[in-house]
Amino acid sequence: MSDSTREFTLSAWVDESVIIDGPRCPGGTYTLAAAVVETASVTAMLESLQALTLTKGGRLHWVDESAKRRDRIAAAIAAFDLAAIVATGAPVHRSKQERARRCCMERLFYELALIGVDEVCLESRTSTPDQRDLRLVDSARDKGLIPHGFRVGFARPRDEPMLWIPDAVAGALTAARLGEPRWLLAMSEILTEHEVVVR
């Protein structure tokens, strides 16, 4: 099939970062980040991501990376042909993390559906919270926030390197909240942030 007739599809990979209300970040923040990519571009992007790892078969994980490595990762992501769509919710108290996640996920999925994403991969947590997320997806469909064809699945970062991108985006946002904005600034041209009030 030629490029001119190939179907254009968008997929998204989603990960989170959380700061609980406390002295370093009063009110706290729940960040849910999505990397939106034209599906046909994924293979080349995966090769670039693998080239960033320190060891063959390794993975990128923002919290484990040095500042110098974060500089390199942020620059690489900023150069990718993708959109980073983020929902950030506050306040986030320790007992209300799942509430914050629901609020952010509902807004994020709505925004992803608006731009034409039809398939989303979330980082899997465990069976019980994954099922909770799927119930929220059903609820969002019932509310008309997302279309019935909007598909949501789960994967582990070891098995799905595309999840490394939203992990880094969410990590950069968290770092900025805690006083180090340079990685977020490096990715600013690809990033759109939607603020959510957690009630």
Results as ranks from 00 to 15, higher is better:
D3A: 15
F8D: 09
T9W: 02
T9F: 07
L10W: 02
A12F: 00
A12Y: 00
W13E: 09
W13I: 03
V14Y: 00
I20R: 11
D21P: 00
G22L: 03
R24V: 09
R24C: 08
G27R: 01
G27F: 00
Y30E: 03
Y30H: 09
Y30R: 05
L32Y: 00
E38L: 13
E38N: 10
A40Y: 11
V42Q: 08
V42I: 15
T43L: 13
T43C: 08
A44P: 00
M45R: 02
A51E: 09
L52N: 04
G57C: 07
H61R: 08
V63W: 11
K68E: 15
R69W: 04
R70H: 07
R70T: 05
D71E: 14
R72G: 06
A75V: 09
A76R: 10
A76M: 11
A76V: 10
I77G: 01
A78S: 10
A78C: 08
A79I: 06
A79C: 07
F80M: 14
A84Y: 04
I85Q: 06
A87L: 03
G89R: 02
A90T: 08
A90W: 01
A90D: 06
A90E: 08
A90N: 09
P91L: 07
H93Y: 12
H93K: 14
K96R: 15
R99N: 09
A100T: 07
R101N: 11
C104V: 04
E106Y: 03
E106I: 10
L108H: 01
F109H: 10
L112A: 05
A113T: 02
L114M: 15
G116Q: 08
G116N: 05
D118C: 12
E119W: 03
E119V: 10
C121T: 15
S124F: 03
S124D: 03
S124R: 08
T128V: 15
P129D: 09
R132S: 15
D133S: 13
V137Y: 03
G144I: 02
L145T: 02
I146P: 00
I146Y: 00
P147D: 10
P147V: 05
H148R: 15
G149L: 10
F150T: 06
R151H: 14
R151Q: 14
R151E: 13
V152A: 08
P157V: 06
P157E: 06
P157S: 11
R158A: 15
R158S: 12
E160G: 05
P161R: 04
M162K: 03
M162D: 02
L163Q: 02
W164I: 06
W164C: 04
P166W: 02
D167G: 06
A168R: 00
V169S: 05
A170L: 04
A170Q: 01
A170V: 05
A172T: 01
T174Q: 14
A175M: 08
A176C: 07
R177T: 09
L178D: 08
L178C: 10
P181A: 11
W183I: 00
L184A: 14
A186Y: 02
A186R: 04
M187S: 04
M187E: 05
I190Y: 07
L191V: 12
L191E: 07
L191I: 10
T192S: 11
V196E: 05
V196H: 04
V197G: 08
V197T: 13
